[in-house]
Design a protein around this nucleic acid. Sequence first.
DNA 1: CAGGCATATACTCATCTGGCTATATATCCA
DNA 2: TGGATATATAGCCAGATGAGTATATGCCTG
Lengths: 115, 115
Amino acid sequence: MDSSFTIVAEPNRRAILRLLLSSERSVGEIERELRLSQPSVSKHLRVLREAGFVESRVEAQRRLYRLRPEPFAELDEWLVPFRRFWSKHVDALEQHLRKMENTPHAKGKKRHDKP
Amino acid sequence: MDSSFTIVAEPNRRAILRLLLSSERSVGEIERELRLSQPSVSKHLRVLREAGFVESRVEAQRRLYRLRPEPFAELDEWLVPFRRFWSKHVDALEQHLRKMENTPHAKGKKRHDKP
DNA sequence: CAGGCATATACTCATCTGGCTATATATCCA
DNA sequence: TGGATATATAGCCAGATGAGTATATGCCTG
């Protein structure tokens, strides 16, 4: 079983996921919107389904695919410790900008809720 | 140039990144902690460096590698729209759990620790 | 300068993966 | 029922990639 990162490493799969973000779609719709061959779309969808990123329901001859949340949460969890790390840098940058704002003459400060 | 997702798709690279989270390290330290061959570590570090995940400084004959924040932020940004999506589900789950907690027959468990 | 660490690179090999073509399966409709 | 539509799967191939071995490069110390 592959990591969720392996799954989203593929650009076309990420494109499919972005599409499904707005609404569920059939294979043919994805095929046309992304200009991929039908077998290619089906194969990617299989990978995405087996990894839990999508699920499908049957409507006549079509299969409508939609997102599932779990794997995204897993990706996010991996990022958590790193987020602590890079947010320090973001804060430092913000503080720097704020300081520059304040140097000539004081300006309004707005607080960003960060730990 | 590869997507940041491609870079972190590799398990050993993720392991290296996790190591660097606590402190900068030399190639040799990574080699020993992860039990990888030295060329393998160097190669992964090259990929990580070229993708902006790490940078190095020279200390005598060693090179100390440390994290850089930008690519992580990029990964995070990609997740943003999906986060909106899955948090709905998390909310639904939490609400469901809360309801079960309040049910008379249910035992009021609040722990989610691993055994 | 020699010799030794520490790290980078070159090269080879095996594996994996995505795309393509062809075909199978399934459902609808006339 | 048969043909059309929609999707899945199989098989093949080319390119990418990670591991391993061997070697090159760089720096430090005696």
